[in-house]
Design a protein around this nucleic acid. Sequence first.
DNA 1: GTACGGCCCTGTTAGC
DNA 2: TGCTAACAGGGCCGTA
Length: 280
Amino acid sequence: MPELPEVEIVRRQLAPLLNRSRVVEAGSHASAKFTPARVLVGASLTGARRRGKFLLFDTDDDRELIVHLGMTGSLTIVDDPATLERTLADPYLRAWWLLGGGAPPDEPGSRLFAFRDVRRFGRVRVVPTGDHRSLPTLHRAGPEPFDPDLDGRLFWELLGRSRRRLKTQLLSQRPIAGVGNIYADEALWLARINPRVARLSQARAAVLLEALRDVLAQGMDNGGTTLRDYRDANGSKGDNQRGLAAYGRAGRPCLRCASPLRSAVIDARTTTWCPRCQAR
DNA sequence: GTACGGCCCTGTTAGC
DNA sequence: TGCTAACAGGGCCGTA
């Protein structure tokens, strides 16, 4: 389940490979979650950005290819003919763009930009640059966690706009972008904050913001978290799952106080916390 | 505008 | 061993 660290790793790997490549052919499976991949034929991909958990690929005709990896999505660029043929035959391939060389001059299509997604939670959209109205979560996403303008006070104000439980707020992407179930549980554990709390003091909000930054940075340093499906653009697994303190450890001893960690479903997501360190 | 439940989707795991 | 049901969960939509 790719969250900010995993998506950022994929972006960093893909960005230098796109190199103004022109889309010479494309295809995708029919889905309401997908803009047909073919609409990009003839355009060149000029850059890769990230906003929260969304990847945004710029084109030379003022459009954006937006990809959300969902839970099991992965993006790769393959160039050797055997791998390219195998990728096209993959039953879980949901969208693909055959790329020519960097412009100018153009070459025949020789590399495949491929989106694979087993559980079909991923999304692919092509929109005019900056027009994110068709993706409400992206459209209303809060600041990036590492935005230098985001400080404890602003984060506290953003959290204060809702009375929903903290865990629900973090997953909504509104007060901060890019946090999913794993890193939300980890940050709340690190900050010793109960996930059911709906209100925080300004000081506690600042502590939570620092905890979010810590767990996200650690996730990136460790190459992302691979529980089952996540692979980076090179097909490699992450290492961060080894260092998780809360997520997926229900019933096991808290790494701080040894109390058994508790879990419950909050906002339809399994949430794990320490009832002692993170008492309400 | 906000909160909440349900849905999408399929591989894995637990239970019988 | 084989079958069935539960589970995992990010984003979106309909309803209250």
